[in-house]
Amino acid sequence: MSTESYQLDPHKWVKAYADYLYAYAIRRISNEELAKDLVQETFLAALEKAANFEGKSSERTWLTAILKNKIIDVYRKKSSGLTKDVQQAEHEQQDFFESDGHWSPAHRPLEFGIEDKDHLGNKEFNAILQKCLQKLPALWMSVFTMKHIDDEDTTLICTELKVSPSNFWVIIHRTKLNLRACLQKNW
């Protein structure tokens, strides 16, 4: 067996990982104060759990996993209770399609310049993309990022966010319809 294992060194945590964890959090919850709180909570929770650290993953991976769980808690809180944001977003796209499933003329996808040109790294475009992402209902945003950014297992996402498998696919579909429409409208 390998004797190599990772050690924890809390004296160096902030210097080594605070910015990384903060950046990780801010993209997923778009709220600076909350992101700061989560970074702090992550370190404090990590101290409490330090005895359970088995050294199988790097400090950064281990801390990120703790942060991830905290972000999921935020998603859950945001998306429980009144799901007004979901209702509103669903309402916005109810006329995307005709009753037979055909695109309604007003919402049909058109070329709007992202198809061939490379927009990666274009600042203006990124700003619009970010706005469109922020407008998504919290639950949709979390399903979308957990799947397409963090590449989490679908079953895990359903369990963590308490959505049924069929609702998972509906959310994935609706999120993209919404994002695409928002980009076409604003770009």
């Binding site: 910015d19 790294g121 397409h148």
Partner: peptide, 26 residues
């Protein structure tokens, strides 16, 4: 739609990756 959808995924992924650049700092 399919073409745009794939591009959007790439762009969102890129946006998240770029957030790992040093300009976002505490």
């Amino acid at each position: 739609y399919g073409k745009q959808s794939r591009v959007i995924n790439q762009m969102v992924q890129e946006l998240f990756r770029s957030s790992m650049k040093p300009e976002i700092r505490l």
